[in-house]
């Protein structure tokens, strides 16, 4: 399976994603500079975390107009697998591939810690290796992860099972106390209508190796591989 890892000016988790795909899962990986106007031969595209364009104006707002984004929108519309992590999630919302917006964290702080997430949907290509209701621990590292959308959109997301991950207690309870950033409905990860685009604030690529202490992020990549083999 071949992964394309998009590099924007200011991306800083691109190497982590590359490393995990290439060295942990032994798959093909290639960096794609944001100025590229062609996106060919990839089975999955990853928009990594970081601070594209310095987060100027709004997070993801300028990166969304990088030339490669036209290709990514086309790839996603054709059913191609697109995974946006952290800043990648922010770019996907700005690009309109996912609804809503990620605002400044409610407590105004940059939060970097492991959080518990409840897997709400395990029928997507990104979550199929998890079981429904499973609680996984994956790190977050962001200042703008406060998910907001109007109430109709939130209801639609709930009704159509498009919330992939929610911030939860270790037992799987969805409470305000464990909501790190103020996200509506504790949303940590979201699918598009077709299920082929996932945006998530937590960093699965930072939790794939025992050397790093936690390995719950592996499931995201294992799911993608599993979906591809099918």
């Amino acid at each position: 399976m071949k992964f394309g890892i998009i590099v924007f000016p200011g991306s800083n988790c691109d190497h982590d994603c590359y490393h995990v795909v290439k060295h942990v899962f032994n798959q093909e990986a290639e960096y794609v500079w944001h100025k590229e106007t062609e996106l060919k031969g990839f089975d999955c595209v990853i928009l990594p975390g970081g601070f594209s364009y310095g987060d100027y104006l709004r997070t993801g707002a300028i990166a969304r107009f990088s030339p490669v984004m036209n290709e990514i929108v086309g790839f996603a519309k054709k059913g191609g697998l697109v995974l946006g992590i952290c800043n990648g999630f922010q770019i996907l919302t700005e690009a309109g591939l996912l609804p809503g917006v990620l605002m400044r964290n409610k407590n105004l702080k940059f939060i970097c810690k492991n959080v518990d997430l409840k897997v709400e949907n395990n029928s997507s290509p990104f979550t199929g290796a998890y079981s429904k209701g499973q609680v996984v621990s994956i790190p977050i590292a962001h200042a703008d992860g406060n998910y907001f959308a109007d109430s109709d959109t939130i209801k639609k997301l709930e009704d159509t099972n498009r919330i992939a991950f929610r911030y939860s207690t270790p037992e799987g309870a969805i409470t305000d106390e464990v909501n790190p950033n103020g996200s509506l409905s504790n949303i940590a990860g979201l699918l598009n209508e077709g299920g082929n685009v996932l945006g998530m604030m937590p960093h699965p690529e930072r939790s794939c190796e025992t050397e790093l202490g936690i390995t719950d992020g592996r499931g995201v990549f294992e799911s993608v591989l599993k979906a591809f083999i099918k």
Binding site: L57, R58, A61, I62, F65, E94, P99, G100, V101, M103, F148, A149, D150
Partner: peptide
Amino acid sequence: KLLANTVI
């Protein structure tokens, strides 16, 4: 297109 995000 760019200067505002009309969602919010």
